[in-house]
Design a protein around this nucleic acid. Structure first.
Lengths: 150, 150
DNA sequence: CAGCATCCATGACGATACTG
DNA sequence: CAGTATCGTCATGGATGCTG
């Protein structure tokens, strides 16, 4: 920040420089670690279980509201509506209304949202792949805590 | 699944087949869309803003508790402790205690957690890249709603 | 019947105070 | 410093009712 390198020993300056590396994201396009940054707020919305599951499903095929609700176990009508709305507002999901009787509403992935699919999918893939190892880690952790309680 | 195509009309068989395509994930390694599935529960834990931010930071360097708290804007002590513990239990993060006075606790990314980094990073990258477009989409959406309120 | 709005109970979350 | 405990608050979820 300041040009006080003259008063800083060489090895410390190096340390500070490598520190700066960690802040690269900050310099680039906003600091996602700052609560007020728009990038962080966007991340908060997409790094969410409901958003990820919805995007994952819509990435495979267009779906109606009730179909989404039926496929995503444990989601409430309220959270589904709320999340879909946020995704639509962010331009990640498209909402198409067919004027039938009764009305038919179909949700699909928007071009902007398609870019997110890769990240969501690799998260899912990772979960599927590592589930067994994670379960083992949990057992080991619980066992360690249990025996330590003596 | 079954060889009963003989009793199923042609067009229905096709419908069922394309249905099966959507269930591919189900056949592979558990159904992440079912609330009770361990894979889904794991996904719920990692598709979380705090988890993603913590993993992202620890992926760059080892950090102490207070340092993490200071870097992640808006996180409470409680959520940080809680999330770190869940990540540690899942084997994604390592917790090293140095018996100094007062104690020094350093968190680092575990081998298992390193595999998740790519997904977290691409999520962050996407957010940084598309933030502007998303903001535009939001304005468009809000404007549309506003004018529709006439 | 699809989809959204409203009410209420519950659990997650955040701020503060306190301990090893 | 690194947490745990407590409590007040707010978001989440479930049930219900409304509209087209």
């Amino acid at each position: 920040m300041q040009e006080r390198t003259d008063t800083i020993p060489g090895h410390l300056a190096v340390t500070l420089a490598s520190r700066g590396d960690g802040r690269r994201a900050h310099d680039r396009r906003g600091n996602a670690y700052a609560a007020e940054c728009p990038t962080r707020q966007l991340l908060d919305r997409i790094a969410d279980k409901w958003s990820v599951l919805i995007l994952l499903l819509l990435g495979e095929e267009d779906l109606r509201f009730s179909e989404l609700k039926r496929r995503i176990g444990g989601i409430s009508q309220k959270m589904l509506a709320q999340t879909l709305r946020a995704l639509e507002r962010d331009g990640l999901v498209l909402r198409a209304v067919e004027p039938t009787v009764p009305v038919t509403v179909t949700y699909s992935i928007a071009p902007l949202g398609r870019g997110l699919m890769a990240a969501c999918r690799s998260m899912l893939e990772w979960a599927e792949t590592c589930m067994v190892e994670v379960a083992a880690a949990q057992r080991a952790y619980d066992l360690r805590r249990e025996t330590a309680e003596s």
